[in-house]
Write a protein that binds this DNA or RNA. Structure first.
Lengths: 295, 295
DNA sequence: TCGATTGATACCTTGACGGTATGACGTACT
DNA sequence: AGTACGTCATACCGTCAAGGTATCAATCGA
């Protein structure tokens, strides 16, 4: 035997009015079915909830306790549809956002700030992934938004350029190149020990540097995938490294950042990307909340 | 338009099975009415909760959010009857317990400990009241149990003796009476400044001392209602006072407690009392949990 | 003692829910 | 490609439960 939400509404009304007739008016029904509702409810609960003679109605202690539970149930039951609608409209929900480690530090903060402001009921889950992992996770539906570097398959993904920045050469502050008064050119680096990007894990930077700064790679002494690791090696005097301008924000000590002569200015691109087919209603809202960041 | 608990149960089953047929089996019904239940529920909520084609069933984001709410509702709805029954049986509830200030410190701790142990779901609310106030509050139903001193009207209240203790004379440790090697008698006090009980607020002690220690009251210099106040005055060398033995527990410095020759030993009584007519189901349980303390 | 108030009961009608039968549609296997 | 199967939706029917009206029973106050 169980009970219904209608019975709970009836019980709450009677408990508040302590009068079957007035409670029935409030519920827009007549008194007899309300009396039966309460009887049925008491039978279902297995306990007398209301003490009533022909003159007055009182809550029993059990009725008082049950009233609390009934109110909690009804409160949730009445709020739930509006909640579901907010989720459905994308005003509330979860966005899973992946980013590529240190290089996105600068813009990630602004992204989170604006999402928080525009969509306070949307919770952002953060994942650190390299671009390759992001593409797989977006396709699988494991994440909704990526902060990554090209190229992307335009069939599967939509993307917007968020940010371009310069490629700089990180050198130790005591290094003779720090004295250079002009942009670095490949010829300056023929004898330098190079800390280079992993071709697998940091393919974007690998390809970018190879195309921007044609030089022999015999001098590569470390192969690294994370910018922050490169900077620590430079800070320790182990060589020089190509890093995006935003690496400056990390604040590693004893490192100078030198301009490089590149065929195009600010060649390092950062994109926001998302799957063309997503069923997360919060995604379009998040994208338009971030549109002011896009170029 | 609203929805029913049965619809929620149906929805939760389908959401968990992601299959109408299996969910229907679990609910011991056939598949067609379950399909209609879900349709009705979606109409009531105003949002599509399940994405379904003829091959597979999936939760929409809104459906996922609504599933959480549905589970919360059903969890409360299923637990509520058992809760109400525990309240009705007195295993769970609230006991409002009044006590008479400092003199009950010793036994109050033991009472609370044992109630906590025997009736962990019964919450004890404490009130500090003098005996007179306790009687009124018990009659009005504002409190359930009192810890007070006689007399009580046996028509209205049931009571049990919890504790008898000696009446002692509190004196400053430098006072000459401290050197006495026998019980104090009235004749010892003819010239002492007396800190005495208020006849209104501390009537029990007033009457008790007057009957136990017949003496002229010309020497009364302070009239006080609380034991602790008396002790501070004694500690400050302002006089001597009659206090119950448990006053020692308060630990006021520089006070000695001297035995008094009284017609009966341990004349100070402390009773547990409660109204004969109470509708608090936790009260009988509390009383029997405390029966081992009674004489 | 009688009338008014209030919750409970009797009886009726309606509508909602579950069951059976069947349809529509898509998948998988031969 | 065709057919059999699986799966959710729809049509139709019977039952049962919920609400309405009329009335009863009990209590209180004048």
């Amino acid at each position: 035997m169980t009970y219904s939400l209608e019975q709970l509404r009836g019980f709450v009304a009677v408990a508040e009015e302590l009068h079957f007739g007035r409670a029935a008016v409030r519920l827009r029904m007549t008194q007899p079915p309300l009396s039966r509702q309460i009887q049925k409810l008491e039978a279902a609960v297995g306990v007398q909830l209301l003490e009533r003679d022909n003159r007055r109605v009182r809550l029993t202690p059990a009725g008082y306790a049950f009233l609390n539970e009934a109110r909690r149930i009804l409160a949730i039951a009445e709020a739930a549809p509006a909640l579901a609608k907010r989720v459905s409209s994308g005003m509330r929900g979860v966005i899973k956002l992946a980013f590529t480690s240190a290089s996105t530090f600068g813009i990630l903060g602004r992204i989170l700030d604006h999402l928080d402001l525009d969509l306070p009921e949307v919770h952002i889950e953060l994942f650190e992934m390299v671009t390759r992992e992001q593409l797989d996770a977006l396709t699988a539906g494991d994440i909704d938004l990526g902060l990554a570097r090209p190229p992307f398959d335009p069939e599967l993904f939509e993307s917007r350029l968020l940010h371009r920045e310069a490629l700089l050469l990180a050198v130790h502050e005591d290094h003779p190149l720090s004295e250079l008064r002009r942009p670095v050119v490949p010829a300056d680096l023929t004898r330098e020990p190079l800390i280079f990007h992993s071709q697998q894990k940091a393919r974007y930077f690998y390809d970018l540097v190879v195309s921007m700064v044609p030089l022999a790679q015999e001098r590569v002494i470390h192969t690294v995938s994370q910018v922050i690791t490169m900077l620590w090696l430079v800070s320790g005097g182990r060589g020089v490294a190509f890093v995006p301008e935003s690496a400056r924000l990390i604040g590693i000590p004893h490192v100078n950042y030198l301009p490089i002569a590149t065929p195009i200015v600010d060649p390092v691109e950062l994109h926001l990307l998302w799957p063309r087919r997503s069923d997360n209603p919060a995604l379009p809202r998040a994208i338009s909340a971030l549109s002011f960041l896009m170029h």
